[in-house]
Amino acid sequence: MASVEHTDSQGLAGEDGVRRRDFINIAAVSFAGVGAVAVVIPLVDQMNPSADVLALASTEVDLTAIQPGQAIKTTFRAQPLFVRHLTEKEIAEADKVDAGGLRDPQTLAERTVDGKKQWLVTMGVCTHLGCVPLGAGEGENKGEFGGYFCPCHGSHYDTAARIRKGPAPKNLEVPKFAFTSDTAILVG
């Protein structure tokens, strides 16, 4: 069969030829593999939030109508958001607790903005399994600690929305927010 190699115009005879040819096959298959991976990127990325969803990722809340002791439920990123105007008594109750002994140690001051301690802004999503706790609406069960109570599995939150009793592992999440004026906040 050696004569075949001699008539072969591509001159692929010998050890080097074999290696070069293997290399080309491997290169071709690798290129196809890289291409396949590159195609997967947009196929996966298209499931991320789209631009219109991201554009609604911040919520402005007007605080003027919320009296001390009241709370409102609004939405932030399509989830409930609790904005609570704490009374002096509730603030005192929250401050009285030794934060160090809590399941998720945090003081009320750490969970609110400096000088605006009466405005408690939290997500209305129980940190256990994501139910909406009661306590923001008028006449709802506020739980044993006067804050929020999640009826799904009985988690009790105190007036600083910290977990005090029940299965939830964390305090209600405080989203990133800032005061745009004395009576308005921008969440997100």
């Binding site: 947009p42 196929l43 990325d45 298209q46 991320n48 789209s50 631009a51 219109d52 969803v53």
Partner: peptide, 13 residues
Amino acid sequence: EQTMRDVNSGWLM
């Protein structure tokens, strides 16, 4: 139209 404009790589799909 939303897919074309807002979804990531939506125009490509």
